[in-house]
Amino acid sequence: MKVVTFGELMIRLQPFNYERFVQANNLEFSFGGGEANVAVSLANYGLDAAFVTKLPAHAIGQAAVNSL
């Protein structure tokens, strides 16, 4: 069985050390989204899974692909 999910990929911005946004000088970011997380989890369990989305053709879009 093959599972295909589709949806938007999001960037989560998070300050270091649980600071508030107004206190932070730097932010850490990670990629995710419900549909992407489901596809990655199913693939980790050995299922044939794919995620369909549209990303920009630049370094941030490639970083999102690399993280998944």
Rank of each mutant, 00 (worst) to 15 (best):
V52C: 15
A39W: 02
Y18A: 14
G7R: 08
A43D: 10
N25V: 01
V40G: 02
L55V: 04
G46C: 11
K2V: 12
R20C: 06
R20G: 07
G46P: 10
V40L: 08
L9D: 03
E35Y: 05
F29P: 03
Q14T: 14
V22Q: 14
A63P: 06
A43Q: 12
Y45G: 07
F16K: 14
S67Y: 07
S30V: 05
D48R: 12
S30P: 02
F6S: 05
V4F: 06
V38P: 03
L13C: 03
V3W: 06
N26F: 10
Q62W: 06
A59R: 08
A57T: 05
N66A: 13
F21H: 12
V52D: 08
E35K: 00
V3H: 13
T5L: 08
F16H: 10
Q14M: 13
S41M: 14
S30D: 10
S41A: 15
A50H: 12
N25Y: 10
N37Q: 07
L42W: 11
L42R: 05
A49H: 04
V22R: 12
E35D: 05
L13F: 12
G32A: 05
F6T: 09
F6V: 02
I11V: 15
M1T: 15
K2Y: 06
A43Y: 08
F51K: 00
Q23N: 13
Q23V: 04
A36E: 03
L27G: 01
P15W: 09
N17A: 12
S41D: 15
A59Q: 10
E28L: 15
V3A: 14
V4H: 08
L9T: 10
G33I: 01
E28G: 03
N25C: 07
